[in-house]
Amino acid sequence: MTVILGIDIGGSGIKGAPVNTRTGELAGERYRIPTPPGARPDDVKAVVAQLVEHFGLPGAVGVTFPGIVQHGRTLSAANVDPDWIGLDADALFTEATGHELHLINDADAAGLAEAQFGAGRGVMGTVMMLTFGTGIGSALIHDGKLVPNTEFGHLWLREKHAEDWASDRARERDDLNWKQWIKRVNKYLQHLELLFSPDLFIIGGGVSKRADKWLPHVELGRSRLVPAALQNEAGIVGAAMMAAELAAGHAAGPAPKPAKTAKGGTKK
């Protein structure tokens, strides 16, 4: 199926839209519901079910989550209720919606979308997507393949997590102008450049809409840097892409087992 529902769980809102996964374009209007206070699993589950019912699309659904997602389980909860830690969220949402549902880290979803349809399209080598908002999300992509759950916003920098010092929330909290904020971000980016030597940095989150304020002040050695192209749609698009890929894999079924030889071995 080409059109898949993507849902993006954010700190202030949970939004969804149907996505044409061949083109990366939304196939309908976005629909947004405010994130329930505290973002507890049962409350968020109810909103996700409401979005799925609103669109009424058949088939798989992709959902982003602001934390580590491994094999359908949410393993961290930096900015949401701690009851998410260790939860089989794929199963929770699948039962609530009656649809095959797949969860992915929100920055990973944005990175996939930008790599295939946005600012990283056609770029080979190492692409690092960073989303600046309440925290700093990250996605690492090499030759189009995602390395999931990198969480580079939690790198130790200036005796604290980088996101505590250089996120967009830190900019607002410390009343920094754009030039003061990008001075902090430069230190962070230079540290990442030293560690990973990415061919391209893509900067997403709310700050990507105001790139004219900070982009002229970026200071890097080797890597290129560009603002995200898909902006608020990236998470929705990436979630739908991931769900489409996993649903196709499930439809194909498991790989055939090797045939046994007469002596009980397997044929090469």
Rank of each mutant, 00 (worst) to 15 (best):
T2N: 13
V3N: 15
I4K: 11
L5C: 10
I7R: 10
I9T: 01
K15V: 13
K15P: 02
G16K: 05
V19Q: 03
N20G: 08
N20L: 08
R22N: 11
A27C: 08
E29A: 14
R30E: 13
R30L: 08
R32F: 11
T35C: 07
P37T: 11
D42H: 09
D42M: 11
V48F: 05
V52F: 03
E53A: 06
H54A: 05
F55I: 03
G56P: 04
L57N: 05
P58L: 04
G59T: 09
G59M: 14
T64I: 01
T64H: 00
F65Q: 00
V69C: 07
V69R: 00
Q70L: 14
H71V: 15
G72W: 09
T74A: 15
L75K: 03
S76L: 01
A77N: 00
A77H: 00
A78F: 02
V80K: 00
D81W: 11
D81K: 12
G86P: 06
D88K: 10
A89M: 11
L92F: 08
L92S: 10
F93N: 01
E95Q: 05
A96F: 10
T97H: 11
H99L: 04
E100I: 05
E100P: 12
A109C: 06
G111M: 14
Q116A: 15
R121V: 13
G122H: 08
V123N: 11
G125M: 15
M128H: 10
M129T: 09
M129L: 15
L130E: 00
T131I: 07
F132E: 00
F132T: 00
G135H: 01
A139Y: 03
L140P: 00
K145S: 15
K145F: 14
L146F: 06
P148A: 07
F152R: 07
K160D: 14
K160Q: 15
H161T: 09
E163L: 08
R171G: 03
L176S: 09
L176R: 13
N177A: 06
K179R: 06
I182H: 06
N186D: 07
L189E: 01
Q190N: 09
Q190A: 05
Q190E: 14
H191K: 08
H191E: 11
E193D: 07
L195Y: 04
L200N: 00
F201H: 13
F201Y: 15
I202V: 15
G204Q: 08
K209A: 14
R210K: 11
D212G: 08
W214K: 09
L220V: 07
R222F: 13
L225F: 10
V226W: 13
V226Q: 13
P227T: 02
A228Y: 05
L230V: 06
N232V: 14
G235H: 06
V237E: 04
G238D: 13
A239W: 09
A240L: 04
M241R: 03
A244Y: 06
A244G: 14
L246W: 05
A247E: 12
A248V: 02
A251L: 05
A252G: 03
P254L: 03
A255L: 08
K257E: 13
P258C: 11
P258Y: 10
A262L: 08
A262E: 12
K263Q: 13
T266R: 09
K268I: 10
K268F: 12
